[in-house]
Write a protein that binds this DNA or RNA. Structure first.
Lengths: 343, 343
DNA sequence: TTGTATGCGTTATCAG
DNA sequence: CTGATAACGCATACAA
């Protein structure tokens, strides 16, 4: 039960602790033979260095943390792989950290930065835009990824990369309208979401207005905050309500692919055909949307590129090459089989 | 940039460090007034304790780690929530740790145990059953969850909870046969998988044999190990090959729901109808399978119960109440819309 | 109830 | 190239 420490290894080898330390850290100033001997003893005795002690002492950890809010979000999956690759490429260590829905990501960041001596942080998802002054306390460079901060006041304070939520939402809505749909319901996140949910809703409204179509409040459906927002279930539930209330619409625009899938299933269960009776569109461009039946017409976010640029931005900050920057990407409308041209 | 430490807080408050320590750790022996004063100073100066230092010193961390191999596996999602709840209920802290596909989970466990002074560990997924003697080195109780160790020799060495893979696979295959299918293709994991993939394949073979149906090797499809096994993509790819090679079959049994979905999509893309032309069945009972169109006929694993029992088992071990135990659960065949009775 | 001193396991800074 | 030794930031036994 009792663990072996670096001292024990030193004693067994008949050397000083600093020599052992040099061996395990690939320090240059060490005799290859002694090093080999030490490594041998380490293997034999199953010595594992204590990371807490290391982090405590070390000043240079070369570690980047990614804080993920909403681990079940399939959209993040493709990004995480890229993060891993890019960070490894820079010879940095990656710390993947979950943040629960109810947790404050800045608090987690603060703790983790101390614990692991981070060089930089990526916030993936989340950010209800409260906790704005909390961000100021973070002592290392960070980038908000997949997050749009509302309001001009943040414009030059923080780095973030995101898709152009308003424009892409506009694009999809406009597309639906050009396909002959005027009565378009929209499935949103919770009512008090001021982040991407609000932006996408704004794009929807903007598109309707540009076509002089009145915005009908009964077609705007918000999810209760307690239910996992953007999930399949919420898409199903909201569509169910839509049908039960007899809201008149020929198309449903869901603000995530997962919600779109839930919507399609709800329609099928109600005996409707997609897209013959009602068209459905999503947002994100996930793998699931492409493989669904019917394939979901959606907006593809350039996830891999966004992830890559997030890391580039972060390292620019770390190397002090640049000041804060905002990168806003265009998406791409991917036609599937879930939207039909009317008349 | 320079961080504030407990000493600084003590100095500012005009008290000793131990008093500050007592304040932040809810120690009973402390004057409520001084405590409040200290907490006030802490808030004002944004003091955050260093976890590395804490872990280093602390002997009792009351922490449980869950090591997850294959974070994108949607089947694990429902389990993680339960883990969080159950562990919190016991007033323990949960450490969620990803393990990359190429990483050795026992190595990660060993490191983490030292770093965080863990009381127990749950291994979720993974375990190619190599690294068996590595398990012996782990100095705290642990439970393998969703893992079946092949071979009688492990029978009494390690605790694990899993579904009865052989029997459930048998159940599904038997069901397909009773629905009039004889030519049943099976989509497996990689050829050298000796874990659940091998068990489920065994169940398939057993069912065929019990009905005196010859096992046709061309209907057994293995995925290359380099592709994400059990994924939608691999289901698609394997089905594609099946079709391209003109393998004769009336049903496809995929060893995961994700693969089943990929299979359905591949069939649709090839102009086939599911289940009219070919039936498809999955395994796991994920949310996605239920919401797919057609809903996937699958084996539901009692994920929540399994998660709960995993924790119970772990705490029994921690409290030394029990020796190692194996818990093997029955699944449930959930009929969907993807399997059709023939003739 | 509070303060002081010690050590947790490592790495970094020195002399040798 | 190597070996003492001083931090790192905190919790705790012990003394007050």
């Amino acid at each position: 039960m009792e663990s072996i420490t670096i001292k024990d290894v030193a004693r067994i080898c008949g050397v000083g602790v600093s020599t052992v330390s040099r061996a395990i850290n690939n320090h240059p100033d060490i005799n290859p033979e002694t090093k080999e001997m030490i490594m041998q003893v380490i293997k034999e005795n199953h010595y594992v260095p204590n990371n807490s002690a290391r982090n405590l002492k070390r000043s240079d950890a070369r570690a980047i943390a990614i804080l993920i809010k909403g681990i079940s979000n399939p959209f993040f999956n493709s990004m995480i792989k890229v993060f891993e690759e890019e960070i490894q490429k820079k010879k940095y260590t990656l710390v993947l950290q979950h943040v629960d829905e109810w947790q404050d990501e800045t608090e987690v960041a603060l703790e983790l930065e101390k614990e692991k001596r981070l060089r930089g942080i990526v916030f993936l998802g989340g950010f209800a835009s409260h906790s704005e002054d909390q961000l100021k306390k973070i002592p290392v460079p960070f980038v908000l990824s997949t997050v749009s901060l509302l309001g001009e006041e943040y414009k030059n304070d923080y780095s973030f990369v995101s898709v152009n939520d308003v424009e892409e939402s506009f694009r999809m809505t406009d597309y639906l309208i050009r396909q002959g749909h005027e009565k378009i319901a929209i499935l949103c996140s919770s009512e008090n979401d001021v982040s991407i949910g609000a932006l996408r809703l704004a794009g929807y409204k903007k598109a309707l207005e540009s076509h002089r179509i009145p915005v009908e409040e009964s077609r705007i459906r918000h999810m209760d905050p307690e239910v996992d927002t953007y999930s399949i279930k919420s898409g199903y539930k909201l569509t169910r309500e839509l049908l039960d209330e007899g809201v008149d619409c020929t198309a449903i625009f869901a603000l995530s692919d997962s919600m779109a899938i839930g919507a399609v299933r709800a329609l099928i269960d109600a005996g409707k055909k997609v897209p013959e009776d009602i068209s459905v569109a999503g947002f994100d461009g996930t793998e699931m949307a492409a493989y669904y039946n019917p394939a979901i017409t959606t907006i593809r976010q350039p996830a891999e590129i966004m992830a890559k640029e997030t890391i580039k931005l972060l390292f620019d900050s770390i190397k002090k090459k640049t000041k804060v920057q905002q990168l806003i990407f265009d998406g791409e409308l991917v036609p599937g089989e879930s939207v039909k041209k009317r008349k």
